[in-house]
Write a protein that binds this DNA or RNA. Structure first.
Lengths: 238, 238
DNA sequence: TGGATAAATTGGTTTATACCAATAGTCCGA
DNA sequence: TCGGACTATTGGTATAAACCAATTTATCCA
């Protein structure tokens, strides 16, 4: 043998790029061939087809539903954080943002939360758990912990529609500095249930610590965003 | 049947959590049993074991090498961006940051780069492609495009060891505002080759636009970070 | 005509198997 | 003693097959 090392790209990866060329000009929502059809068409096994499609789903290029089929996905949503709120952001891009409240309660702070909020472990803090939606589609699962006295928080968040609005308008709490941490995470059963993503899909895990003008920690929030639909933007002065 | 719906968690997910309990107290570098051994031990197939291990590798909990075995991975590196440079950041955490320069050249700007840097398409811009390393381990693949006259850039970047230092010290260019965009991406052949990650591993794709004090775009950079080793931190005033 | 039921379709999970490729260890010969 | 070939081990890729689960479509009956 004279030329023994050709390319060695995995077969599923080649197939993935072939499927990409099939869908790059298709309108979102278009149905693609079934896995069994693609396997036969490209002379491969369904396992390999599923691996290729699986990555395209993770990258937000395809959506699939058991019993229905696999479809071309809409493009990513861009979200600009900073001054603007989640709601204003979406509006500026011609989309409607909303939130579904799962829980508003008072709980004893676990050690991690207590340290972040600078309260004693076990001290009572407010807990706000929500699903954030854009155009009716679930985009993130968010759990916020808040220190301090906030009577009637549940009702106020409900009325204002925004946690930040309620803090500012109803309690005079202003957040002037935030620290965001972003890392990757894979979807587990919770995300599958709440955000309609697939097991193992890449997610963006965001932690936010909000400080008031005096530098006191006020808000500690953990958010899990769909990695296939979301883009995180931070603008800052050096 | 009275209770037909028990739990329905995928078998590989249950196994994944079992493996997690095995390794959570182990020192980094510890060798875990072989895939074939785990399959027999837990009464499942090697395919299922590989699916479980694959996610743990994606999450940065395990490292594996063909022919050697699978090992407990070291914890994530935290990186604070903003005022501090990549180099200073690492130093503050007791680690050593370095960069391997792959290419410093002048190229005609492609349409996207030209628009970001506000130059005409095809205008010559500087291109700096590097691998960023922490403690000798590759962490990110970064390609920066710079507008303007920068004679001797290659040598200066080499000497300074930092692109930002060279811009500031050698050309008097200061970046006073940046916009970072963070999203997820799956590792392709390039990342596998340059960053020693697995095909399909989740990565953080970061785009940075740097502006000088007059608001003129100076730097346009695309970075691909290992999602299993990296955490992105942004601190900002509202 | 409307609605319940059955069948077909399509993606989801798991197993078993075979072979490839990289590594580490062993053994043998110069 | 060193160097290289061989072998065993371990992860990497791919196939075929079977069965489950959600959805859609077709069918049949009241």
């Amino acid at each position: 043998m004279e030329t023994p090392a050709p390319a060695a790209l995995p077969k599923y990866y080649v197939l993935k790029e072939q499927i990409l060329t099939l869908i790059e000009d298709a309108v979102p929502g278009t149905l693609i061939p079934t896995e069994r059809a693609l396997a036969e068409q490209y002379g491969t096994s369904r396992t390999t087809v599923r691996q290729a499609i699986g990555e395209l789903v993770s990258e937000g290029r395809l959506d699939r539903t058991q019993g229905r089929g696999t479809f071309v996905a809409p493009p990513k949503v861009t979200h600009v954080r900073q001054l603007t709120s989640f709601t204003d952001d979406a509006a500026s891009q011609g989309m409607t943002a909303s939130a579904r409240i799962l829980d508003v309660s008072e709980v004893p702070a676990d050690p991690v939360t207590a340290r972040r909020l600078a309260v004693e472990p076990g001290a009572v803090v407010h807990r706000v758990e929500r699903i954030r939606l854009v155009n009716g589609e679930p985009l993130a699962h968010e759990t916020a912990f808040l220190a301090g006295e906030l009577p009637g928080l549940a009702g106020n968040v409900e009325v204002r529609g925004s946690l930040y609005s309620a803090l500012r308008e109803d309690y005079g709490i202003r957040i002037s500095e935030v620290e965001d941490t972003v890392e990757t995470k894979l979807a587990g059963p919770d995300e599958v249930r709440l955000l309609a993503v697939e097991m193992g899909a890449p997610m963006l895990l965001v932690h936010r610590l909000g400080l008031d003008p005096d530098g006191r920690p006020v808000e500690w929030t953990e958010s899990v965003f769909r990695g296939d639909r979301f883009r995180f933007v931070a603008r800052m002065h050096v």
